[in-house]
């Protein structure tokens, strides 16, 4: 990856030629998994309902039929056990993909995914790696109440030794998933249940999107908006509204928050002199607060205002639909933050 990251070409927004076909986000994730499983027999998928049920959210639909029960493994509701088991198999050289029906359920597997996977290489002095992908739905928005609505990036991005990928669209999901499966380190891949049915252009040929490589979704000169995952769409919508008010926003989709593509963000903020960070996790000690601190540090003399932040509200996720929509880092909040950051409030 170092070669990729040091290559200035990869700093450009990624555009994929010949992308005429439209498929759903879930299909893109499945294509990535299937292609990698055809390529590498060490790769297998396990999780609750991934095989016979075809996946709780149909992400793994048809995979049992293609790869068989030895490589598409149904597990009991036993996150701690099957996460630890997958990690043990990765230490021995397999490349498991672990599906959490929801990342909210990963909390009962906190010990294996935080205490084993990211530390194995270090504690063994370089002897045992852990090439594993944990993936599943993350974030609120489906009226599932507080226990099922975690944005775990707020917790897990604090831990060294993991790579955290949060794609916002089908094409990215496929390219980033393929990179995740081939990566030699543990990768947390955070999908959004709200995006699984979203359709988008996905090339049919093979492509990989390197980690640590942000995409500029909308170029602009007045304010930089940084986000990842589902809120990128809120940012794009806000940018359209703000454009009508004469505020020209640049929207950056970080795609991975570990590694974090700081150079792309810094270059943008040096141009716009204003920055808003939009993060669907809670605000206190979050990836958003980290990014804001980094922007302050690197763009101290370039900023015309402090970096504004939009998060989910600092309360447990509510069930009631209007309350939940208000709770999210929604378009209204983003517009208000951008107006404030650019002194247009």
């Amino acid at each position: 990856m170092s070669a990729v990251m040091s290559n200035p070409l990869f700093r450009e927004p990624l555009t994929i030629a010949g992308a005429a076909r439209e498929i759903e986000f879930r299909d893109a994730v499945r294509e990535a998994m299937c292609e990698e499983m055809r390529r590498d027999k060490r790769v297998y998928l396990l999780g609750e309902e991934v095989a016979q049920y075809d996946g709780a959210y149909k992400v793994s639909k048809g995979m049992l039929a293609e790869f068989g029960a030895a490589r598409v493994v149904d597990t009991p509701i036993s996150e701690s056990g099957f996460s630890g088991m997958a990690i043990g198999s990765a230490m021995l050289g397999l490349r498991p993909i672990v599906e959490f029906m929801s990342w909210s359920f990963s909390l009962v597997a906190a010990d294996p995914i935080l205490n084993n996977a990211p530390k194995m290489l270090y504690m063994s002095g370089g002897q045992y790696g852990c090439p594993i992908v944990f993936r599943g739905n993350d974030g609120a928005g489906g009226q599932l109440g507080s226990t099922h609505s975690w944005s775990v990036e707020g917790l897990f991005s604090n831990v060294p030794g993991v790579k955290i990928v949060i794609p916002s669209n089908p094409a990215d999901a496929k390219g980033l998933m393929k990179t995740a499966i081939r990566d030699d380190d543990p990768v947390f891949f955070l999908e959004s249940e709200r995006l699984l049915s979203m359709k988008g252009h996905v090339p049919e040929g093979e492509y990989l999107i390197p980690f640590g490589h942000a995409a500029i979704r909308r170029a602009g000169k007045d304010c930089t908006i940084c986000s990842w995952g589902r809120p990128v769409h809120f940012c794009m919508e806000a940018a359209e509204i703000l454009a009508n008010e004469g505020i020209d926003c640049e929207v950056i989709d970080l795609r991975t928050i570990r590694p974090l593509d700081l150079p792309t963000v810094v270059a943008s903020v040096r141009k716009t002199s204003a920055a808003v960070v939009v993060d669907q996790s809670w605000s206190f000690a979050s990836p958003g607060s980290e990014l804001a601190a980094q922007i302050h540090r690197h763009c101290f003399d370039d900023l015309d205002n402090f970096v504004h932040r939009v998060h989910s509200d600092d309360v447990p996720t509510p069930y009631a639909v209007a309350l939940e929509q208000e709770y999210l880092p929604n378009v209204r909040k983003i517009c208000e933050a951008v107006r404030s950051a650019t002194y247009r409030a």
């Binding site: 630890g84 088991m85 990690i87 043990g88 198999s89 230490m91 021995l92």
Partner: peptide, 14 residues
């Protein structure tokens, strides 16, 4: 103990 199950999973899988 889950790691031990995983080692067995991996050797059997191989």
């Amino acid at each position: 103990t889950p790691l031990g199950a995983g080692l067995a999973f991996a050797t059997k899988y191989e």
